[in-house]
């Protein structure tokens, strides 16, 4: 069994905790509880006959006024940046986070456009098509509420961590 540390990052209320909850426990709640600091979960996933235990560090929401504790990124095998497609600002924040991560470590970054069950904000695609693509290894559209794309996203991230390892 191989363990991999994965960091979930993103602006506040984009659905990081909900994604993890949906992935690990298969449930979704409309109640919003802001995360403080970091919350950790784990999930076992099979990648090409290899058992990978993902240690999911759900780091509190980051906004323009406060950064995040870079130490949480230590030893992380991959980062997932979650953005809320109903709020373009979250994408901008995500871009900033991407830059910060890249400044610290060269790890695969996956950008996850969450809340796929809701309408996309205007001008979203314009922003998304910008230089953000240069930082990321993969991108996913998910809905923590319906579970759409969640499993596939995490499996891909697991693969990315192994590829890096290999």
């Amino acid at each position: 069994m191989i363990q991999k540390k994965i960091c979930m990052l993103g602006a506040s209320a984009v659905g990081k905790t909900s994604l993890v909850k949906q992935y690990v426990e298969g449930i979704f709640s409309d109640r919003y509880l802001t995360s403080i600091g970091v919350k950790i979960d784990k999930k076992m996933v099979e990648v090409d006959a290899t058992s990978v235990q993902l240690m999911l560090w759900d780091i509190e929401g980051v906004d323009r006024y406060c950064g995040f504790n870079a130490k949480y990124l230590r030893g992380t095998a991959a980062a997932i940046i979650v953005v809320d497609q109903t709020r373009p600002q979250s994408l901008l924040d995500g871009l900033e986070i991407c830059k910060m991560i890249k400044a610290e470590k060269n790890i695969p970054i996956t950008i996850v456009t969450n809340k796929g069950d809701l309408s996309k904000a205007d001008g979203w695609d314009d922003i998304f098509g910008g230089d953000i693509q240069t930082f990321i290894s993969s991108a996913f559209q998910t809905s923590a509420k319906t579970g759409e794309g969640v499993e596939a996203m995490f499996t891909t991230v697991a693969k990315l961590t192994l590829n890096k390892a290999n």
Binding site: Q3, K5, D41, K42, M55, W57, R74, G75, A77
Partner: peptide, 25 residues
């Protein structure tokens, strides 16, 4: 130290074992 991943754990009383992975993280 770097990843916070559990390398190895030894438990005296197996019935009282905690989740070492979560604990480590």
């Amino acid at each position: 130290r770097e990843t916070g991943l559990l390398l190895r754990t030894i438990v005296l009383d197996k019935t009282q074992a905690t989740d070492g992975d979560m604990f480590s993280a």
